[in-house]
C-alpha cells in the first residue's frame, strides 16, 4: 500500500515528491509540450527556500519572471493578469519576497491537478511503467 506507485495516485504532491514519479511526469509533460509548467513549479519551490540576503536571489526572481512569465509561454497563459502584474511590479520595484511567486504557483498547480495529473495517470507512459 505504501509503494511509490500507490503514493503517486494519492496526490500530485506525492507524485512530485518522489524522484522517479517527478521524472516520469516530466517525460510525459515534455511529450505534451507543457514541461515549462512543471519546471516553473519546482522553480517556485526552490525560490521560496532561497536566502533573501543572498545577492543571487533577486537575479533568480528576475530569471523566473523572464523565462516563464514575460514570454507569453504556457505558464504565462495559465496565470491571471493580476498575478502577472503583481510579480512584474515586485521585480520592477526590487521588492523581492520569498512568497512573491506563491499565488502564481498555486494557479499553475491547480490546473496541473485538474488536467495534466489525471491525463498522466491514464497515459501509456505511466501504464507501461506500472
Amino acid at each position: 500500500p505504501d509503494s511509490p506507485l500507490a503514493r503517486w495516485t494519492k496526490s500530485l504532491h506525492s507524485l512530485l515528491g518522489d524522484q522517479d514519479g517527478a521524472h516520469l511526469f516530466r517525460t510525459f509533460l515534455e511529450r505534451e509540450k507543457c514541461v515549462d509548467t512543471l519546471d516553473f513549479w519546482f522553480a517556485c519551490n526552490g525560490f521560496r527556500q532561497m536566502d533573501l540576503k543572498d545577492n543571487k536571489t533577486p537575479r533568480v526572481a528576475k530569471a523566473i519572471y523572464k523565462r516563464y512569465i514575460e514570454n507569453y509561454g504556457i505558464v504565462s497563459k495559465q496565470l491571471k493578469l493580476a498575478t502577472k502584474a503583481y510579480i512584474k511590479d515586485s521585480i520592477k520595484r526590487q521588492h523581492i519576497d520569498s512568497v512573491m511567486f506563491d499565488q502564481a504557483q498555486t494557479e499553475v498547480q491547480t490546473l496541473m491537478e485538474e488536467n495534466a495529473y489525471h491525463m498522466f495517470l491514464t497515459s501509456d507512459i505511466y501504464l507501461e511503467y506500472v
Partner: peptide, 20 residues
C-alpha cells in the same frame, strides 16, 4: 559570475526530489 540560465537551473534542481 553565473548566467541567469545557470541560476534558474540551480534553483529548479535544488527543489527536485532526491533519491531515497
Amino acid at each position: 559570475i553565473d548566467s541567469e540560465d545557470d541560476l534558474l537551473q540551480e534553483c529548479i534542481s535544488s527543489a527536485m526530489p532526491k533519491k531515497k
